[in-house]
Amino acid sequence: MNFEKLNVTREGGVLFAEIAAPPMNLLGPELVGDLVALIQQAEADEAIQVLVFKSADPDYFISHVDVTRINEYREQVMKMEGATSLALLFRRISTSRLVTIAQIEGRVRAVGSEFVLACDMRFAARESAIFSQFEPALGLLPGSGGAQHLIRLMGRSRAMEVLLSADDYDAELAEKYGWINRALPAAELSAFVARLAHRIARFPAAGHAVVKERVNAVALASAEEFNRDGDLFSEGVRKREAQGIIQAAMKNGLQTRSGELALTAILGRD
C-alpha cells in the first residue's frame, strides 16, 4: 500500500495508518484520496480486521479541512462507492466491516473531529489531545456528521455547549462528555491501542459484523441526516458572511502552524 499522506504498516490482522500531511495535517484532497484508497484496499483483504489511525505530528491529528480547497474534494470522495460528500464518506467508515480506532494526540478540530467520531472507538493522550467543533464560529453547521454524533454521545445540552462555544476541550473533559472512549497517559496510549486492536483482530469477523450492524442500527444517524448536514454546510460556506469570517481568520493566522495552536482565540478576534 503506497500513499501520499499516510504511512501504513501491517501487523497480522491490524493496519496502522499514520497521518502525515505537513505542515499541520489539514484534510486536503490528497489525504481524502488516500483515505478512500486505504479503506477500499483494506476491505478487499479479508485477513485485515482492524484499522488504527494515528498521527505522525504530535501537535495535530487532523486540524480541520483546508478551507482554500473545499471545492476540490468531490472527485476524490466519489471514488468510494455510494459516497457523494465527505459526510457520506465518513458515514461509510462507520458502516465498514473494518473495526476502526482513532489513536489521538494533538489537535483534532472540525472535520478532524468528525473523522474520529466516524471511527468505532477513540482513545486520546491526556497531555496533548485537544478537541473542537468550531464551525459555528464561522456561522456554519458541521457538515460531516459532527452534530449527529455529538448529540447521540453527549446528549442535547452538552452537544449544544460544544457546538455553540466553538471552544477547545481537553482530553479529560472530552472523556467525561463522551467525545472519546478514554483519555490515557501519552506514554501508555500506543501500547494500549495496539493490545486492543490485536485482541479484536483475533476474534471472528462475523462477530465484528453483527455487532457493528446492530450498534449502528441504534446509534448511527441515517444517510439522509448526514446529507442534510452536508447540504447546510455547503450552503452556509458560500455565504458572504462566512467567507468574510474565514478571510479575517486567515489574516489572523488560520492555517498557519503557529496560529492554529491558539485557533479558538483567532476565531474570537475581529
Rank of each mutant, 00 (worst) to 15 (best):
R158V: 09
E175V: 01
V162F: 13
L150T: 04
V162S: 00
M160R: 12
A186M: 02
A171E: 08
A159S: 11
R152Q: 11
R158L: 08
E175F: 01
D170H: 14
S165T: 13
L164N: 13
E161Y: 09
A159N: 04
E175T: 07
N181M: 05
A174F: 06
L189G: 04
F192T: 12
M154Y: 01
Y177E: 08
L153G: 00
N181G: 04
E161A: 11
A186C: 06
S157F: 10
A183T: 09
E161D: 15
R182M: 09
A159T: 14
G178N: 09
E161S: 08
A187K: 15
F192L: 11
Y169A: 04
R158I: 09
E172Y: 00
H149F: 15
M154A: 13
E188L: 12
E172K: 11
A186Y: 03
H149N: 13
L153N: 08
G155C: 03
A183F: 04
A186E: 13
D167S: 15
L163C: 02
L173H: 07
I151S: 09
L173Y: 09
E172A: 14
Q148S: 12
S165W: 00
A191H: 07
F192Q: 09
E161M: 12
M160V: 13
Y177F: 14
D170F: 02
R182H: 05
I180W: 02
E172V: 13
S190L: 03
A166I: 10
E161G: 07
K176R: 13
D170A: 11
D168C: 10
R152G: 05
A191I: 07
E172P: 01
A159L: 03
L184P: 00
A166F: 00
N181C: 00
I180F: 00
S157E: 14
S190Y: 06
Y177H: 03
M160F: 10
A171C: 01
L163D: 03
F192Y: 15
G178E: 01
F192S: 13
D170I: 09
L164R: 10
M160I: 08
L184F: 10
I180M: 01
L150W: 06
V193T: 07
A187F: 02
A166E: 03
N181I: 02
G178K: 04
I180D: 01
A171D: 06
A187M: 11
R182K: 11
E175S: 13
A171G: 07
A187C: 04
M154L: 14
W179D: 02
P185R: 08
R182Y: 10
A171V: 05
L189Y: 04
M160S: 10
D168W: 02
M160T: 15
W179G: 02
L189E: 03
F192K: 14
H149I: 06
S190G: 10
E161T: 12
Y177M: 13
D168Q: 12
A171Q: 07
P185C: 08
